[in-house]
Design a protein around this nucleic acid. Structure first.
Lengths: 240, 240
DNA sequence: AAGTGGTCTAGACCACCGA
DNA sequence: CGGTGGTCTAGACCACTTG
């Protein structure tokens, strides 16, 4: 219901692109035309179009118009790392999540640094393995500050912690910083994953921040080399 | 000189953050105050603040204000893959670029698909090796449609093709799509890189689009495992 | 209740593009 | 030249936070 006007226009235009009413290469109506269609002001239309542009659906060209792009349909949903769930869904492959550890700990030196916490604070530690087609591919180690996440259960971890945090606890995730690099396998990797002949894993460190800019989660995700994949869609910034 | 007003405000605020005049955790002046300081309208201030927010420098909180974040200073400049140059600069290490191949070719099947071209079009192929501290770390294979880049020389390739395209040819790069994955080393990798004991490379496929949404460059960048690093800063989108 | 950021309006002028 | 998108203004009302 009471959606923002510019968001509802964004969604309306998006669905027209996805349904093929606006086809790749085509120009969508001009801002002036859209102002009349949606009976709103030009800045509101521009907000909707800028969103479409930032998400890679259209390209705005000064003096010409906005044309529909075709880059996105080949790809995974939005820019960024495809999650385990999305991957499994896309590929239509049988998969499951195994909760290996769930405990309350005090942070060690490394974790204190990553989570910006003191030695006295309580931290949830969750270790999960993601299995696709019977192969244990990804090792996820999540750490949550108990201050933000008072309760966790194996059941919640086996489903989606993510959904629990956003829907049940109403935590508003605002932004995340990710780091990727390759590391030699650890004992822990060998214990939990089916590594085959691979001697290295791709490590993704994920720092998640809430709406009020407080860091509440640190995750280390360790992927078997051959099953790692990432897609990034980046708009170039033209300052100056 | 004749810079946009909102961009000059953005740059001014940014330099105050980087100089520490606005410190992490601090609130910057309210939009109303900034309107008076910069003698402009509120929407213009908001454009500048939204840019700062999108680039991860501040966090806007409704009803409270905008606070300065501290996530970025630990990291490489803007979100996205750090380029060879940035890496070398950051680490202050001696480095150079070696142009191994520069030729005009007709696209094979794979390239036709990647560059969206026909078999008759001419394609520049550039193969370069990036060396840091005497080690050949990265193999870059660039392909340009001759339609957009009529002339290239070894000299240009040894410096920065990038600068040449933007400054000399005035090409406006608009957005890029990147794919990351890990692959087994090829003969070519072994020939050009110092791979040490590593049996795999991190492959980055880069598709670059111009302002008019035409695809003009395809690049395959092959990194030795231990020297690959990526940082991503992603704002979470809250639709609905 | 006062202050904050989020949305929205109805105008204006500009730079760019195509015919 | 008319049409396009980019910037900018000076208001307005709202939802939210804090005292």
């Amino acid at each position: 219901m009471s959606e923002n006007k510019y968001l509802s226009i964004y969604n309306d235009l998006l669905s027209k692109i996805e349904k093929g009413i606006f086809k790749p290469g085509m120009k969508i109506p001009s801002e002036h035309q859209l102002v009349e269609q949606y009976e709103t002001s030009r800045e509101t239309i521009r907000k909707a179009l800028n969103l479409l542009s930032e998400h890679g659906y259209i390209q705005k060209i000064k003096g010409k118009g906005s044309i529909v792009l075709d880059v996105r349909k080949f790809d995974f949903p939005i820019s960024g790392l495809i999650s385990f769930k999305e991957l499994a869904q896309k590929l239509g492959k049988p998969s499951r999540t195994i909760v290996e550890q769930l405990e309350m700990i005090k942070p060690d030196e490394v974790l204190k640094k990553h989570l910006h916490v003191t030695a006295r604070e309580d931290i949830w530690k969750v270790v999960r393995v993601r299995e696709i087609e019977g192969e244990r591919i990804i090792l996820d180690k999540d750490f949550f500050n108990k201050k933000f996440v008072p309760f966790l259960s194996k059941d919640i971890c086996a489903r989606s912690i993510y959904e629990y945090l956003e829907k049940e606890l109403q935590l508003k995730i605002s932004f995340a910083k990710k780091e990727f690099f390759v590391e030699e396998c650890t004992e822990e990797d060998r214990m939990y994953l089916h590594l085959k002949q691979y001697t290295h894993v791709v490590v993704v460190r994920n720092y998640v921040y809430l709406d009020d800019a407080s860091l509440f989660q640190y995750t280390e995700s360790r992927h078997r080399l051959d099953k790692f994949r990432f897609v990034d869609f980046a708009r170039r910034i033209h300052l100056h």
